[in-house]
Every structure is written in structure tokens, then in C-alpha cells.
Design a protein around this nucleic acid. Sequence first.
RNA 1: GCGCCCGUAGCUCAAUCGGAUAGAGCAACAGCCUUCUAAGCUGUAGGUUAGUGGUUCGAUUCCACUCGGGCGUACCA
Length: 552
Amino acid sequence: MSKLKEQVAEIIYNAVKESGYQISEIYLDKPKDEKFGDLSSNAAMTLAREFKLPPRKIAEEIISKIKTDDGFITKAEIAGAGFINFFLSDNCYKDELKNILSEGKNYGRSSVHSGQSANLEWVSANPTGPLHTGHGRQLCLGKAIANLLEWTGYKVTREYYYNDAGNQMNNLALSVRARYMQIFQKDFPFPEDGYVGDYVKIIAENIFAVYSDKMKDSADLDFFRKEGEKYTFDLIKKTLTGLGINHDIFFNESSLYENSEIEKTLEAFKSKGLSYEKDGAVWLKMDEEKGFQKDKVLVKSSGEPTYRLPDIAYHIDKIKRGYDLIIDIFGSDHGDTYKEVLYGVNALGYDSDKIKVIIHQMVTFKMGTESVKMSKRSDNVYYLEDLINDIGADAMQFFYVMRGANSHLDFDISLAKDKSEKNPVYYIQYAHARICGILRNAGEVFPSYAETDLTELNTEIISSPEEMKLLKILSDFPDEVISSAKTFEPHKIITYLNSVAENFHRFYHNNRVIDAENKELSISRIHICLAVKQILKNGFDIIGISAPERMY
RNA sequence: GCGCCCGUAGCUCAAUCGGAUAGAGCAACAGCCUUCUAAGCUGUAGGUUAGUGGUUCGAUUCCACUCGGGCGUACCA
């Protein structure tokens, strides 16, 4: 809770107590409509149910205990079914303006989770090809969520689960070898489910450039696998670092084999009687009462584990590392499988309470009204690098994060690409650029503004409705960060930034900032601009987009 | 069939533990540039929150059912 909220909550709490009631927690909402004040509490309605009294009567009792003459709360009134609405003095917000300016890039950071650690694992694409637009949503969501967690005090470990074994990698090896062989023999057969992307041909050409025909007819699939893995993983990492995403840990799945954790996990299932053998495979018994319909295979009859077994071992490993919060991000196509993994983790006696799985819905790409079809088979794949080249990294991240994860996302490429007022990302960035323009102007007219002592800043002069509305919105930022972080929903930050931009643009049109005739007013308005700029920048940092100084 | 998610303005989406008159952008219509960036602002229009019932002071939100869509329902990940 922000300081303002805390103070009001404290006042209500005491008033409730004085009135002879008891309440465990005070909820304060910011009403949608300004006429209902700055903060609103439903405490009286909650108590009404408990004490079987009319809510308005309780509200009256509470309100009579609240002081409104100390310059903090200017008015407290009962409205509607029994809401208690509080009107705060303008000075509260003017003081907050100074806080924003003095805390600067740290304004909005909180310590609600300080001392706690979080692990976020996401992207985790297999090194079989470049990242494509299907990876984009979780990539951008994860980046923003990791930042949000840090803003609320978590020490965050960013992790990538790296799977360099299994079917898909074999498939890559066969594909690379086929392309390599086709250099010598045009009709060399390409594997049925091979990777048809052009990058495979490039890998083959690179091999040819170094080894010439030495690997011709070689049965050494391992060689082709490693060449393919190295090249594709470099592509993946290049995309990630280009977006400012730097994982702290690349957890290699094969390490779970090397330290026998896979084996131990399998043994644990066996010894607890949770698995059995059938048709040459090892099956995990699933609990029907927990909604599972049938048993699942842990080890295939080929002797190779399915993804489940290492995944369970991996999650146990993460639990053992002692994080306070463990987050996985998956697309909805994995919506069932994570439940199986958690079931396995629990069945072995580990507590999965700290694991939070974020499932996001699928993304549909459109060019205007026309939907963009993708298919791996025909290499009709829209790679993330191409999307970035087409619309820019900022627009891409903005669009991916702009909606709640649980909503299906319609990604309109032509809109994102549009360098016009239609594009929502520019609306917000433009507010920042516009402020930078004003500040350039300020630097010429009142070059001394930068040396203003905040304690000397005249805030009395701030009075227009647009100014006050803007200050109120700005002071919401810390709460917005906390609430977005709490529910892991970075789109709330975008919704909020949009309202900041909207109120700034309105302020701009109605309040001339630089007025050579009125230095005092200009200086205070310049500081409002500085605060807006700071909030926008802090929000952009969380989402991970840039704060442009100019947009022409 | 079963499981998860979703259904809100013409389109894409918001809506703070269940709160007050359900909000933005795009599209449409009407205005605003000798003044700090018009990538902007102002106004108009647009809704039985898919439907039916239930829970209560109050339901877009919770419950049940129906209809419609997405994703799963592999010895792929």
C-alpha cells in the first residue's frame, strides 16, 4: 500500500475501534468517479453483515470519529449503500510530487518482498531453430514479470531450461546432415519431419566451408547435432540479448542425467509404488480423484524417458534450491502437462506451493483483417527477428504484453507497424518525447530550473484541474506496481501508463508550461513534467521498452 | 465425451478481495495547428457484459446449466 493509503487505513482502523467494532483488514479503493473522493472504504458494509446493522448507521458512527481539520483529510462522507468516501487535501499530492522527484528512478520500488528470492524460468526453447513469434508472448511477459518482481523487492534468478537431448535434437541432426549431403547429391532424401527452415541450409553450408567433404557419408550424427545446436542456440541468445534479456542460469537438462537425478527420481516413484511397468514402459499412476483421466508414461519402451521425468526432477531441483517463489511460464498448449509434473513433484513428498505456473493463451497474427498462417512444414514461420525488424522491438514488446495473459491475443502486425497515431505504443512514448521537447525549451528560457531545491519548489501555485488530476494519477504508480506484481500481470502497467499519457497530453493542451513572463509558474510546471517523465520512464523500464527523447 | 481458458461497444481489449452511472484504443461523425512536437486535444454516437436461473445490501466478477470459440486429452515437448 502506498503511504497515503496506509495513513487513511490507519485512521479508519482507529475510528472503527473507537466505535466499538472490530475489523481485521481495511480495504481502500480508488473510486472510478472523482465525485466519490480520493479513497473509498466499504468497511461499514463489511461490518454491517457481521453485526446485522444498517451499513449507513455504522458508517455514521465511524465517520464521527474521523478528524477533518488537520489538513490531511478534508472531508469524509457517506455515500450510496454505505461507502465512506475520503477527500484528501491537494497538499498530499503536492508533497508526493516532491517524493517522485527525489526518489527518481527508484520511485515505485517497494520492499514488500525484500529478503525473498524468486526464480523465473521462461523461454526455454529447444535449440532446434530460431525463436519465432509463437515464443514472443512468453518471452515478453517473462521479461516484464521478472522486472516487476524485482521492483517489489525479490531477488530474481532468471532461468532457461535447456534441453539438448531427445527426439527433436535428433531430428535437427538428421536435417542438418541431409542439407549437407544435398550439397553433393541434390536428391539426397530429407527426413519426413525434418526442420525445413533456411537456417538448416546455412548450418550445412558452414560445415561445408570448414570441413569440405570430410563429413560426407559420415554416420556421426552427434557431429551434426552439435553443429546445429551451436548455431541455433547462438541465434536464440542473440535475439534474447538484443531484447535485453539475460538469463542468469541456463539449466542443462543433461546435467540431470549426469548427476543421476533422473534415475533417483525414477527409483523414488518405484519404491513408493507410484509407478509400474507395462508393455515395456514405465507408467506413473495418476490419481483420478484429482481429475487425471489416465496414467502417464515416464519411460518409453525404448528406454528413453518422456519429458515428464526430467521435468519432475528439474522442479524438485528448483524446490531444493530454496526459492520463496518459483514461476514457470507456458503457453496454454501446455496447460495440462504442468499439472502432471506438479502431481509428480507432490507425489514424491515435495511441496509445490511455492510454484506458480503462468499460462498464457495463444496468439493470432493478423495483417489488418487477414490472418497470418504459419506452418513449420513449409518454413512459413514468422521468426521473432523478422517481427522485430518489421515493427521494432518496442512495439513488439508492447503488443505482446498489452493484454492479460488469460486473454487470447490478436496481434495486428499492420497496426503495430503503423508509424502513426493509430499505434497505441506511440501514444505513450510520444508523451515522453514531448516532455523532452519542453525540457529542451526550458533549458533555454529558464536554464536554472535544474538547480531548483525541491524544498523550495513552489507547489502552492499548482491549481488547475489538469495539474491536480495528473498529480493524483502519478501518485498511484507505487500501488500499480505492487498490484501488477502481485497478480503477475504487467498489462496493468501499460493500462496505467496509458492513463498517465492521456492526462499529460490533456495537461499540455490546457496549461502552457514555459511562460517567459511567469517564471514561478513555469518552474513548478516544469517539475510536473519532470515527474511525469520519471513515471513514464520507470514504467517503460518495467515493460522493457525505450523512452525516446524525440519522435519526428 | 472429458479437462483448462475465454465470451464485455462494429473491431481489439480494460474494469483494483463482489462495489457506486461498465471504460480505453481503432473504425464512424463534428470541431481545434501564426503559441513548448497535431504521433496531440475537444465533442458526438455506440452496451440486455453470450443466454437462463441462483447466492446478497450490491454480480462483468461467485455458483449451476445452456449456447459459442481456443487449447489440451501421445511411449512429442
